[in-house]
Simulated assay, not measured.
Amino acid sequence: MTAAVSAPARPCPVAPGDLCDFRDLGGFPDLSGKVGPVSVVQCRRCGHGVSLPPLADVAFLYAGRATQDFRQDGSRLGHAIKNVAFRRQARALLAQLPARPARVLDFGCGSGQFTRCLDDELGPGMVTGSDFETSPPADLTGRSYVPAGALAPLAGSFDCVLAMHVLEHDDDAAGLLGRIAAMARPGGILVIEVPNSECAWLKVFGKAWDAWYLPYHRSHFSRRSLRALVEQGGHTVLALHPATVPTMGRSLSNLVGGNKGLTWLLAGIGLHPLQVAGERLTGRPSALRIIARVGG
């Protein structure tokens, strides 16, 4: 079975009226141990990537919060370091918004550590975390949390809805975006952040680049494909910001077959200035953040 046959037909955002011209990037490690052979195809024109085989429902991949999306940091030092980083990230995000929101939903909050830091910045109780787990993660104990399956009654009630590194986890990114945006009030703000499939560090790390993260990451966005997805959803893009996600330590760990423990976290911190410099020099950041107004 060739990549051309396996890849779904997808309109290419840089070639109106034509489909994505996918090339096969080959096989990747199955980090879940639940899927078997996995691969990625990527459009030669727009840079959008798709993980194969397709998965109609990805919930089984996250059973028991066994992935790095949900896992709490095992060391007090690692948790403290991430707190510092997440507080800085929360302040930077709030500075990018057109106005300070009164009620925020962090959709796909994962471990909840960033959610808590953002809630501390805005004032406790102003940020609600949500994910498909019925119980909140440890970092959101005593904070506002609503399971994704129970969000429907809150549709249209949030000033700002965040989906930070969420869209890439679903084969139907457009459908997921629609469900996320529906939680914002008309004219509210939508913040989407995803890994950049055209990151400068891809050429250095290749398949060991941590943001490939197969089979958990299902869609791989470029600037053009992310903007097209948001605009096709009927939303007005206000800004598209480069973002740096600290992937150096985990990518190095992938290269040597190590774990993702404190040693690699510290290695990533030490190499972070190099990562930032490389991304700024090339204009190819490790992540992309779109801020949009819901419903145009």
Rank of each mutant, 00 (worst) to 15 (best):
A4I: 13
P8A: 13
P11V: 06
C12P: 14
D18L: 12
C20W: 05
F28L: 14
D30Y: 04
P37S: 11
V41A: 14
R44G: 08
S51W: 06
P53W: 02
L55E: 15
A59P: 09
Y62M: 10
G64Y: 11
Q68I: 01
F70H: 13
R71G: 12
D73S: 07
D73I: 08
H79A: 08
H79I: 03
H79V: 12
K82D: 10
N83S: 15
A85C: 05
R88G: 00
Q89L: 15
A92K: 10
L93T: 07
A99W: 01
R100P: 01
R100D: 03
R103Q: 03
R103C: 01
R103M: 05
D106Y: 02
C109A: 11
C109S: 14
G110T: 08
G112K: 08
L118W: 00
D119I: 00
D120A: 01
E121Q: 14
L122S: 00
M126Q: 12
S130T: 02
D131Q: 03
S135E: 13
S135Q: 15
P137F: 02
A138I: 11
D139C: 09
T141E: 01
S144T: 07
P147F: 06
L151F: 01
P153N: 00
P153D: 11
G156H: 06
S157E: 08
S157F: 04
D159L: 14
D159A: 14
V161S: 01
V166K: 13
L167V: 01
L167I: 04
D171M: 14
L177E: 02
R179F: 09
M183K: 10
A184E: 07
P186K: 02
P186L: 05
V191Q: 00
E193F: 10
P195I: 02
E198N: 04
W201F: 15
G206W: 10
W212H: 04
P215I: 10
P215L: 02
Y216K: 00
Y216E: 01
S219T: 00
F221N: 05
R223F: 15
S225F: 10
R227Y: 08
L229H: 03
G234T: 10
G234Y: 09
V237K: 07
P242L: 03
T244I: 11
P246Y: 00
M248I: 15
L252M: 03
N254V: 10
G258Q: 13
G261R: 11
T263F: 08
T263I: 11
L271P: 12
L271I: 15
H272V: 06
A277F: 11
R280I: 05
R280L: 07
L281D: 02
L281A: 12
P285Y: 02
V294W: 03
